[in-house]
Amino acid sequence: MARRVLILFAHPILERSRVNRRLLDGARDLAGVTIHDLYEEYPTFAVEPAREQALLAAHDVVVLQHPFYWYSAPALLKEWLDLVLQLGWAYGPGGTALRGKLMLNAITTGGSAEAYQPDGKNRFTLRELLTPFDQTAHLCGMTYLAPFVVHGALRLDDDGDVGPHVRAYRALLTALRDDTLDLAGAARAPTLRVEAGGRP
């Protein structure tokens, strides 16, 4: 059974992106994967909840792809969550629309993997820092999977650097779509990689 995958993409200044742009381009030709470019769809932040809810209803996997900004997502993605995940639709009495779906973050960070350790510069692991997303998914009855992460994004400069990450991202999206992923394992892991490509 094929799952339908929705990439909610949030990058405020994609013109100057090196990593996210390539990751996204790599996913464009995948069948069964919908790309929803939030900053392009809502340049003035006027998110339309009904339209977004219909989109969510038509998919089984929600991938929040964005650069890691201040240990969180760019502003529009937060606005999107605030407006779209409504009481009685996403959670609360009668709020069952998202139940059983999968959700994960696909992020790029300036910091290295070592920095996101208890004894590293950032003091917390990414799983810890992403707990607001984890709990958001949980409250809506969704299964939250470990994040797909590209570390040290500022040091990746060209296609040669980013290529392995693009392949890994494609492999992950394909596995999600074709349901070949061990979901229990993916929910527990610190980060998600289905194919050794770049750095862990």
Partner: peptide, 16 residues
């Protein structure tokens, strides 16, 4: 949002 300034920083590995 200036990534260039961040990239040219001497120790980019020191995240954030």
């Amino acid at each position: 949002w200036d990534n260039e300034a961040a990239r040219s920083s001497r120790r980019p590995d020191e995240a954030p």
